[in-house]
Amino acid sequence: MTFLSLEPIRVLLYLVGICAFVGANAAYLVLAERKGAGRIQRRPGPNEAGWAGWMQPLADGLKLLAKQIMVPPGTDSLLFRLAPLLVMAPPLMCLVTIPFGENVVARDLNLGLLLVFSFGSINVMALMLGGWASRNKYAIISAARVVSQNVAYEIPMLLVVITLLMMTGTMSLQEITAQQAGGFWHWNLFKLWVNPLMPVTFVIFFTCMLAETNRAPFDMAEAESELVAGAFTEYGGMGFGVFFMAEYANIVVGCCLATVLFLGGWQSPIGILSSGAWGLLWFFLKTYALILTVIWIRWTFPRTQFYSLLNLSWKILIPLSLATLLLTGAMMKLPLLWRALS
């Protein structure tokens, strides 16, 4: 125990753990996605490799690894190679501060939320670089879309988070989780006495997360019926594979964050049994439920139009999140005002 509590060893263990977590998630979420799509479309999905297709991620990975990585002539080969690396780094960094359980957190920073958002924004840069460096018209259109989409959705997302911060008064994710202890009625999602619009806030957050991670119905960057594969058009082999993994890693981060911020993190919904391994169980149950919802949404809706996507952000989500922000402020401060007056 003393050995494990040594700081460098602990950090190293977490590093390996997070990398493995992201890798396994990316691999098996692809399978889950394909299986889920299959179920929705009433077909079995991949079922040849291994029992019921469980070896499919391995087969896919081997195939991608075996492919030659081509750098198209005339591209900026440094940027072209750098983009997949850059796209993978932010989600790994974001997971550092996510509390998976009562004691399972790589590093509980008191500015954890800020760290998550600042690294989350780098993701856009990587996609833009990849699109720009590809020297492909589709990729460049896609890069332009990614930037405007992410800028547009960062705002309502941050406004929503500010609402939360006003409630919690802390940026430490572990502390935010701790505040939601004692049953699901204590989760931020249901704190209706602080802000009756809290479920709306969650929907806004979830929508923004979909848009930030370029998931359908907001997959403007990879709109394959318009832009072939968008920013990834010129990537093949593992270059493409890393972009693909990063997409899923981002979804995992987004859903983890949603769990921590709104669904009580590792807190049990019934108020008891949230310590130790139970906490891990609750956390992953909530997170994967959200991830499955993301998959479900993808296989249900058509893609939104680009300007209606921006309209949604600027005309609906931002005013709504501003309204929740104001309402929360009012709900929190008015009693104080009233007490001061009386």
């Binding site: 889920g36 299959g38 179920r39 929705i40 479309q41 009433r42 077909r43 079995p44 479900w296 949404i297 296989w299 249900t300 809706f301």
Partner: peptide
């Protein structure tokens, strides 16, 4: 829409 796809997902495979 989500309800419809969920309902379809609960029905048996047809392929």
């Amino acid at each position: 829409g989500l309800r419809i796809t969920a309902r379809e997902a609960s029905r048996p495979i047809i392929t």
